[in-house]
């Protein structure tokens, strides 16, 4: 966080409209990486580091998906399951640009952290493979799954929100992904 404050431009948390949310978000994002990288310096207990890292990753996933994304950039996604057929589909929603203005600083921080995290974990996965530390691979795999899921979902959510805002009439952007899901929507609304 400290080195990011010094960078020029709008990447300073003082310009944020939700400073607490932003700082918590960055803290969650960075802490899991820090524990994974430097945890072994403080304790020899691999199991403890494993658990702390996974819990931090899960907390980060939850916080990003449900709170930070909503408050920083006004986007949210989730997954719904049709109880009859068991098909799952993505649902995206975004805030109305007329009622909520997105702070440019928040947005930049958000997307930077969003895309930086999976890249860093991929690098760590390659590192673990090269150093033959296979015991860490499950952890890295989980981290990758969590971060990449969030990144993909939010980038698609962003696309959908831009499309629906362009259409103008949208109070909220909501779209169903995939042909199966659209079929199902047809069935739903046809009743």
């Amino acid at each position: 966080m400290e080195q990011q404050q010094n960078t020029p431009g709008s990447l300073s948390w003082r310009l944020s409209s939700h400073p607490i949310t932003l700082l918590c978000f960055l803290a969650f994002r960075i802490s899991s990486l820090l524990v994974y990288l430097f945890g072994m310096l403080f304790t020899e207990n691999l199991v403890m580091i494993f658990i702390i890292t996974i819990l931090l990753l899960a907390a980060d996933f939850y916080y990003l998906k449900n709170i930070a994304g909503r408050r920083l950039v006004g986007l949210r996604w989730w997954n719904e399951v049709d109880p009859q057929s068991g098909d799952s589909h993505w649902v995206f929603e975004s805030s109305d640009p007329a009622t909520k203005t997105i702070n440019a600083t928040d947005s930049r921080f958000f997307w930077l952290a969003m895309y930086a995290q999976p890249v860093l974990w991929i690098a760590l996965a390659i590192l673990a493979l090269v150093r033959l530390k296979f015991i860490w691979l499950p952890l890295v795999a989980i981290a990758l799954v969590l971060t990449v899921t969030n990144t993909l979902a939010f980038s698609r959510c962003d696309k959908f929100s831009q499309a629906s805002n362009m259409a103008g009439s949208a109070l909220y952007g909501r779209s169903l992904a995939g042909s199966i899901a659209s079929n199902m929507a047809g069935r739903l609304f046809g009743r």
Partner: peptide, 25 residues
């Protein structure tokens, strides 16, 4: 839960959840 997907009263309704407080979430 079926019909309200059209009407929008349960938690699937996007209008309700995008602006709620952290504690509600």
């Amino acid at each position: 839960s079926w019909t309200s997907r059209i009407g929008g009263e349960d938690r699937s309704a996007p209008v309700n959840t995008i602006d709620e407080t952290v504690w509600e979430t």
